[in-house]
Amino acid sequence: MRQSPVLSTRPGCTDRGGHQESHTAGGGQFGRYDAVWRQPEAERYRDSILVMDAIDWLILVVIVLVVVAVAFVIIRRKRRGGGVIATKDKG
C-alpha cells in the first residue's frame, strides 16, 4: 500500500469545526486521519533514535571503563611484581 507523504506533524491542528486537520497530500486510505495516526509514529521514531543514542553512549562508557580497569590491573601487577629468586651457587 502506498504511504501518503506527511506535510506537517504539528500536534493539535484542527479545522474550524474542531476536527483534526488533514495535512496529507492526496490523502491516504483513511483520508485526513492519516496525519493524526502518523504523527505519534514519527515521534516514536525520533524518541527511539534518542534512546539508541543513549544506549550507544552507555556501551561506549562501559567499554572505556573495562579497558581502564584492565590496564589498571596490569599496571598494578607489573608494579607489584614478585618472584622466587635463587642465588648463584658459591661452591
Binding site: 607489584r80 611484581g81 614478585g82 618472584g83 622466587v84 629468586i85 635463587a86 642465588t87 651457587d89 658459591k90 661452591g91
Partner: peptide, 10 residues
C-alpha cells in the same frame, strides 16, 4: 610489603 623471596638453594 614483600615483593621477591630470595633463597639460597645451596
Amino acid at each position: 610489603e614483600v615483593r621477591d623471596v630470595i633463597y639460597s638453594p645451596e
